[in-house]
């Protein structure tokens, strides 16, 4: 591409043009993910009363446990922000530190969630029992799958960062990752409110 002149008639470098496109594209993808989750939320909202003789949310949700999960994820969102601040200062070591902390917190969240799921299943409350349980496992599980994907992505980024400096490409990908991770915490706010808190009412 030759140089594009934007509407304000200010010359922008090739890198900035790419960054602007990529961040807008990724943001648009996150918005489509919102609609995906909305469909799952709608399904949960409609079907959560259909317990078919099995347990309801009140019977199976453990609020203190979920509070801990929530705090872990929130802190990890904060540490991602700290990693981005360090990246802008080109401080590679700090970036690595905060990214690793984020990863450990994310892994802790996922382990707690998987533990919760396996307890439910071993108690006989699996997704095959009722529409409520199907929609619960799917909504929360889809969020968990996104967290897993994020952790895999983070692993790749951390590995890259061990081997090289913060190039503009790596900076761009770190920015996208942080957008993704913050977004997952936003979705979790919806989940802990609608599924767990409202389930306990």
């Amino acid at each position: 591409m030759s140089k594009h002149v934007d509407e304000m008639a200010i010359e922008i470098s090739h890198e900035e043009v790419v960054n602007a496109k990529v961040t807008l594209g990724f943001w648009t993808y996150l918005m489509t993910d919102c609609v995906l989750f909305a469909s799952l939320f709608a399904t949960y909202a409609v079907l959560h009363g259909n317990t078919f003789g099995g347990p309801s949310g009140k019977d199976i949700f453990d609020l203190p446990y979920i509070f801990v999960e929530t705090m872990i994820l929130l802190v990890s969102s904060f540490t991602t922000g700290l990693a981005m601040i360090a990246a802008r200062k080109n401080n590679k070591d700090q970036v690595l530190t905060w990214l690793i902390v984020t990863g450990l917190l994310g892994a802790a969240f996922l382990i707690m969630e998987l533990t919760e799921f396996s307890h439910l299943i071993s108690d006989g409350h699996s997704w095959t029992v009722s529409a409520f349980l199907s929609s619960y496992f799917t909504l929360v599980g889809t969020h968990g799958l996104h967290i897993l994907t994020g952790l895999l992505w983070l692993t790749v980024l951390i590995t890259k960062l061990f081997r090289q400096d913060i190039t503009s490409t790596l900076m761009r990908r770190l920015t996208l990752f942080s957008m993704f991770w913050h977004f997952l915490d936003v979705i979790w706010v919806g989940i802990f409110t609608v599924v767990y808190l409202m389930g306990a009412l």
Partner: peptide, 17 residues
């Protein structure tokens, strides 16, 4: 500071601590 960060700073799409 790398290019991306400069561009971001110019357009204000970042946050301080």
């Amino acid at each position: 500071m790398n290019e991306q960060a400069e561009g971001l700073k110019r357009r204000g799409m970042h946050g301080g601590i």
